[in-house]
Simulated scan of single mutants.
Amino acid sequence: MGAGIGGLATSISLAQQGLDVTLVERRETVEALGSGITLIGPSLRALAALGLHDECLRRGYGFSNFDTFALDGSVASSFEIPSPVGTDQPGMLGMMRPALHSVLLDHALGLGVPIRTSAEPVSLHQVDAAVSVDFADGSRGEFDLVVGADGVRSTVRTLVFGDLPTTFRGQGCIRAVLPRPPGVSGEVQYHPAGDVFLGFTPTSDTSMYLYCSIPVPSDYRPTQEQIVDLLLEKTAPFGGLVADVRPDIGDPSLVNFASFETVLVPEPWHRGGAVLLGDAAHCPTPQLAAGAAMCLEDAVVLGEELGRSHSVEDALAAYSARRYDRCRFVVDTACQLSHWQTHPNTPGAEHERVTAEAFGRLAEPY
């Protein structure tokens, strides 16, 4: 359930195993909003396993260079983003989020996956070997397996595991789609200006998105016009490339804001024939750009385990065991980086070292 990145990827993974899949979405339409998305190497490895790697590269911008800049715009450091072990893929890919969603959706439909919209689950019950699901419109369905890939505020998680509240991390991010100057040929991050953390990800030969993370209160809900003004204010101390692109910031439709909430469901992630996947089970802050990677890996692993196990129960236990420690590492590390950004005077904070080491660890097999 859920037609975002995790749900679509899971539909593809399970359909490729020859399973009969129905994708259920609570909204009236299947679409993706937002700006750009950064896909680190493990995302590309998972997309390759799903047969989508080349199409995503055509729709985005692949690179392996990661540069950091001082506040005045001078280069501070550079390192190579590792490719996933055993591949020659770029270490990172930037693309527009609707473009990624379109690739996933088109592939799922091409595999014959039916999509049911406006379907909000209100109860789940295990009935013998099946899961019975009641929907808000009064209908009912029975399934051998229910996958909750319905995001950080997952309805399936609540129905299966009870109330597991998310944690607000005291930070949010403004993202703006902008023209890409020639100086942005890979991932760019600036040294912070106090508690303001900023960077760029190229998404095509002509476009990129700027991300600006700032401390915010839990009830912060700005208008689109306020987001533009706030971004102009927060980017003012930065020189170099940031100063060059600031005049391009202005169209409210190309700017959005999201606050950071996280969750990590204790292992195992399944009860009976219902299992959690992606942000429903393990939602990190975006500091490692690994949220999508973990969703895509979840989808691949779940398909692998269902293809090799003798029962659904065995497959779900193996899936959860393979994924928990890796996803916990991402949540814990990303939250540590978020804390350092909102508390810039923390002794021993080593943002660049921890980020580089995390990319190396995540490039290893899973």
Rank of each mutant, 00 (worst) to 15 (best):
L39P: 08
G36Q: 13
A358G: 06
W269F: 04
R97Q: 08
E267W: 01
A3D: 08
R45N: 13
S154N: 06
Q226G: 07
V75N: 02
D229M: 10
V122Q: 14
I12K: 04
A108Y: 10
C56F: 07
S11W: 03
P181I: 05
R140P: 00
S309F: 03
P284E: 10
H270G: 08
L210Q: 09
E304R: 14
Y220S: 03
A49N: 12
L23P: 01
E350Q: 13
A119R: 13
A292L: 01
D248H: 10
G239C: 05
D298C: 02
L104Q: 03
V133T: 14
I5D: 02
S320V: 08
Y211F: 15
S83P: 02
A290R: 09
R59T: 09
T68V: 09
R308M: 11
C212W: 10
S154F: 08
G239H: 12
T29Q: 13
H351Y: 15
V113E: 13
Q224P: 00
V184I: 15
L210M: 12
R153W: 15
P284D: 10
C212G: 08
V122N: 07
S218L: 04
A32G: 01
A32E: 14
V242G: 05
G138T: 06
D88E: 14
G91C: 02
A129W: 08
S320E: 06
V263N: 04
G86D: 11
P42S: 04
Y220I: 05
L306G: 01
V24R: 06
H282M: 12
R169Q: 14
S154I: 11
A289N: 08
S74V: 00
D325H: 09
P217G: 15
I5M: 01
D134P: 00
E261S: 01
A76M: 07
E55G: 03
F79Y: 14
S35E: 15
C327T: 15
L316W: 06
Q189I: 14
W340F: 04
A130S: 12
A280P: 11
R246A: 13
Y61R: 05
L8G: 09
S213Q: 08
E142P: 01
V245I: 15
C56N: 09
Y209P: 06
S320I: 05
